[in-house]
Design a protein around this nucleic acid. Structure first.
Length: 585
RNA sequence: GCCACCCUAGCUCAGUUGGCAGAGCGCCACUUUUGUAAAGUGGAUGUCGUCAGUUCGACUCUGACGGGUGGCUCCA
């Protein structure tokens, strides 16, 4: 593995020190691997004792104590036999040694410290020149987690200790501070504070419910994407939420994702499942009528909920759920329309991302794992063609991308757009999947210019991905400060005193009549408290009405984002709000 | 599902070695009529996540279960 991180030597050296400290404190612990990460390092141990964060002080102290006597790392190239002897009893290191040996690479160990604190580890290198250069106050053990050996859930779960490490103590402190700030944007926290969604123990985990305010945001998003798609010539359809099991046997989902789709049986013994995807339904809509080459592309769209029995440990707020509503589309196209169709989709996606101000996203082209071709439907030829079309399209688009082997869908390769959440995890939003295989399973054809049947090509596309996840990311992106068009309450009308209520109510009624989501703060509180409430609720605008305003027949407008906007007439107010909502500013 | 940690009022959190359940905010009532981020007084609110166990006695100790957070694995 190549390391572009300039702090890798420092972080990896500290991983060695962590290994040494754990070996001292937990003599029976077996060490496995200890790489660097984006913010520090970790080491995986097979240790009979439970290590918890309460042990960190003890381990950190041991690290600092051992580190005192460490200087240069001494590299030794050792023979296969010596390596096996040196690491006898440690099945993890032995497994690595076998692999290195099988690849014909040389086996190296790195020794740090002398005497009692000496520590020898199997390692390919990448350390600091001199350990004494490391600031021993610029690292901190962060958390403990379970991690399967070699990332395979069939293997034993090891204890992984994560550490943060930076060049200087101030860097560590500023990272921790930044992290704390980021946690304030957590959509679960803001979602609760602003009353956007709730998850009930009784309804079930991973099954979020939109509260009135959150539902306004969701509805606006739905309206927005539906409108965009309708203008581009998509046709909206509606399908039932359960289907016969046979449908998914035909599509091939059943057999690969059975655990995700629990079966229910009717009185005749017929088996049904909740839909975990919309594709097969949409395919059957396509097959309900004959199609001419002239009718393509045919774009079937639906904002529809699918149900997936995800593993409980996976569920997280709105970002990973059991019920997700996709802005799903299936594009039925001729082979010669693939490129232009993908370009059109990129255009839509770009427009959406610009509107929301997402500019820090990663584009991944997910292809087959060439070593596990049996996991995928279809011939090599078809796959190679599909993969090269996607790569070519993204290249033409002129954006940075990475190729992810083994990440493809079983029926075809895909382009995934991943966006970061508040704590830096990336989540897939947009997905564009090219499918030459399902058209065969469902025998989806069109009549060509030549009068003969031709097989159609399918693109599976979701721009938002799911409304749940998109909203989760959006809440964190805006930190709850939604733009006017999305805000559950767009403006609140605040009378200074009770005597101003009549005039204020007129302004409020006018806004309501115009379709603006207004709130009337006629409660018995002083102005400061009402303004404070508006700010806490992150309402984009509030209007103050008192003697001065009544006298001038105006209102005072104030903005969450830019502060005082001065006195304007109600006509000007309405015009301003309506135009900002329309322009989605 | 697996690993670690967490669960006390609507929210944020105190609660000593096991001995009568607490604060602030919010809520309700009254007073106050207010000009830009918290007016005053009073009041209600809890099966201390659930169920067992240990104990004279459990919010506190133990176990199981449920839920949450962060990882691992998975993600059509």
């Amino acid at each position: 593995m190549e390391h572009t991180d300039p702090l890798h030597p420092l972080r990896h050296s500290l991983a060695h020190l962590l290994g040494a400290a754990v070996r001292e404190l937990y003599p029976t612990a077996l060490l496995s691997i200890g790489p660097s990460t984006e913010t520090g390092f970790y080491y995986d141990f097979d240790v009979p004792e439970t290590i918890s964060d309460k042990d960190f002080i003890k381990i950190e102290n041991k690290m600092r104590q051992l580190g005192k006597s460490w200087a240069e790392f001494e590299k030794n190239e050792i023979s296969y036999e010596d390596a096996k002897k040196l690491f006898a009893g440690n099945s993890y290191k032995l497994e690595l040694i076998e692999e290195i040996h099988a690849k014909g690479e040389s086996i190296t160990t790195y020794t740090s410290g002398t005497g009692a604190s000496q520590f020898i580890d199997l390692c390919r290198g990448g350390h600091v020149e001199n350990f004494k250069d490391i600031d021993m106050n610029a690292f901190k053990l962060e958390r403990v987690a379970g991690a399967y050996w070699r990332g395979n859930e069939k293997n034993k779960m090891l204890t992984r200790v994560y550490g943060l490490a930076f060049e200087h103590k101030v860097d560590l402190e500023s990272y921790i501070l930044q992290r704390e700030e980021a946690e304030k944007r957590d959509h679960k926290k803001i979602g609760k504070e602003l009353g956007l969604f709730t998850i009930s123990d009784l309804v079930g985990k991973g099954l979020p419910m939109y509260m009135p305010k959150g539902n306004i945001i969701r509805s606006e998003l739905e309206k927005y994407i539906r409108d965009k798609k309708e203008k581009l010539g998509y046709s909206f359809v509606t399908v039932p939420h359960i289907a016969k099991k046979e449908l998914y046997i035909r599509s091939g989902h059943m057999g690969k994702y059975d655990a995700m789709m629990p079966t229910m049986t009717d009185e005749n013994g017929e088996e049904f499942v909740m839909k975990a995807m919309n594709c097969p339904h949409h395919f059957e809509i396509y097959n309900a009528e004959p199609h001419s080459y002239k009718d393509l592309p045919l774009r079937l769209a639906e904002n529809s909920t699918v149900y997936r029995n995800e593993k409980s440990g996976e569920l997280s707020g709105l970002l990973r759920v059991k019920n997700l509503t996709q802005d799903d589309t299936h594009h039925f196209i001729r082979p010669d329309q693939i490129k232009s169709e993908i370009e059109m989709i990129f255009g839509l996606m770009n427009e959406v991302y610009v509107l929301f101000g997402f500019n820090d996203y990663k584009i991944e082209i997910s292809v087959r794992d060439p070593k596990k071709k049996e996991l995928y439907f279809g011939s090599d030829e078809i796959w190679e063609k599909a993969e090269s079309i996607l790569i070519e399209s993204v290249k033409k688009w002129g954006v940075q991308y990475s190729i992810e082997e083994g990440e493809a869908a079983f029926y075809g390769p895909k382009i995934d757009i991943r966006v970061k959440d508040s704590i830096g995890r990336t989540w897939q939003l947009t997905t564009i999947q090219l499918d030459f295989n399902q058209p065969d399973n469902f025998e989806m054809d069109y009549t060509g210019e030549d009068g003969k049947k031709h097989r159609v090509v399918v693109l599976h596309v979701a721009i938002f991905g799911s409304f749940e996840r998109f909203m989760g990311i959006l809440i964190e992106h805006y930190a709850g400060n939604f733009p006017l068009w999305l805000s559950p309450v767009q403006v609140t009308v605040i009378p200074v005193r009770e005597t101003h209520n009549v005039y204020a109510k007129e302004v409020f009624d006018m806004l309501k009549t115009a379709g603006i989501r207004a709130n009337f703060a006629d409660n018995n509180e002083n102005l400061g408290k009402k303004v404070r409430a508006a700010k806490n609720e992150k309402i984009p605008y509030w209007i103050v009405v008192g003697d001065k305003e009544i006298e001038a027949n105006k209102i005072t407008l104030e903005s969450r984002d830019v502060g005082q906007l001065g006195q304007i007439t109600t006509g000007e107010l309405l015009e301003k709000l309506m135009s900002e909502i329309k322009e989605k500013k």
